[in-house]
Design a protein around this nucleic acid. Structure first.
Lengths: 182, 182
DNA sequence: CGGCTATTTCTGAAATTACAGAAATAGGAG
DNA sequence: CTCCTATTTCTGTAATTTCAGAAATAGCCG
């Protein structure tokens, strides 16, 4: 199988994945390289990725480093070939968790730090309208709540998590003294 | 209060919000306009936004249209002034739900359609490796599961949702025949 | 240690995106 | 209906980002 990008359906998947990436702040090439590896059942070396996607070697190199930063792609070696080969995470659930973890680290954590700092600086200031202090405070709290919820659920074993998702709104029944799904 | 962007803390918030936006695929100016309105306790007209943020009138116009598309900013009118004024959603939770709804509509729904189409085209094809069909199928299913979970929980009343979040991993206790949080 | 290949970093060019100002349009007031 | 102001759309320019190829580095093998 040397022709992944020659299968029109695989190509469509890869291109769409690239577009999705760029709409969510991930470099298009990075997303395409990921999609290619996701569809591959064997480790691929950088040069092959270049050919398959029509990207420059340098960009593929950067993309691979980025994907390894997310821990959704890892290096392996193929016997008798000293080039690095690359392999992607294939479980979509793991993929989501890994991406979430890294984006939290890169973007959410610094945001919480900044907002915390702003809240501290605004404390007891007479020259700043109350509602400004309050709204920055609310946002800080909200993101903090979401984040600790995330930290909580990411430790739940995957099968339990999947079971919970399938329950969907039914979990609302277990909220003390509440009716449930309206 | 005509000096929101003159408060260094407010300015820092607005600038950071803009950066966050661009990391998540939202135009920086759009995010900044939103941040300004979020911090304001009164409706603001377009010209004032331009001055406060140093953006071109045209970009502010585009940004406002975009924010109204997300339904997180709405037009109002101030007595004795025939210019449009704008006001932002102030509840972070509503904000998140509105943004999620719109991004689902714009990006996730089309993705599910595409993947569904690819899955259909790959059905029973002998010239495509099994694992390609399977992986596209898995991704299709996964995104579908996430989406129906989302459709489920977005109907849950906000207070219940907040209570559920605070429960965090404890909800795992209610998953039938599972131990819970490990 | 010298040659060879793989990989990463650097640099200028190409493409994309954001922008300001001008022009066009819309819509109320008189 | 005409004038006047607000708003949106259009257009050329500026800034940013992406990219390919070149140069530099690293690391094996004989």
């Amino acid at each position: 199988m040397t022709t992944l990008a020659k299968i029109p359906e695989a190509e469509a998947f890869i291109l769409h994945w690239g577009e999705m990436g760029s709409q969510w702040g991930v470099n298009r090439s990075v997303a395409q390289v990921h999609a290619l590896l996701y569809l591959s059942d064997r480790p691929i070396h950088a040069e092959e990725i270049c050919v398959a996607l029509g990207l420059a070697r340098s960009n593929v190199s950067t993309a691979l480093k980025e994907l390894q930063g997310y821990e959704i792609v890892r290096r392996t070696h193929v016997k008798g070939d000293r080039r690095d080969h690359f392999l992607a995470e294939t479980d979509p659930w793991d993929l989501l968790l890994k991406i979430a973890a890294e984006r939290k680290r890169r973007e959410i954590d610094p945001t919480i730090l900044l907002l915390g700092d702003l809240v501290a600086r605004l404390e007891g200031r007479k020259d700043v309208p109350d509602h400004v202090r309050q709204r920055i405070g609310h946002m800080h709290q909200f993101i903090g709540t979401l984040t600790s919820w995330y930290e909580d659920v990411r430790r739940v074993p995957k099968p339990t998590l999947i079971a919970l998702m399938k329950l969907g709104a039914k979990v609302a029944r277990f909220v003390p003294s509440r009716g449930g799904t309206r």
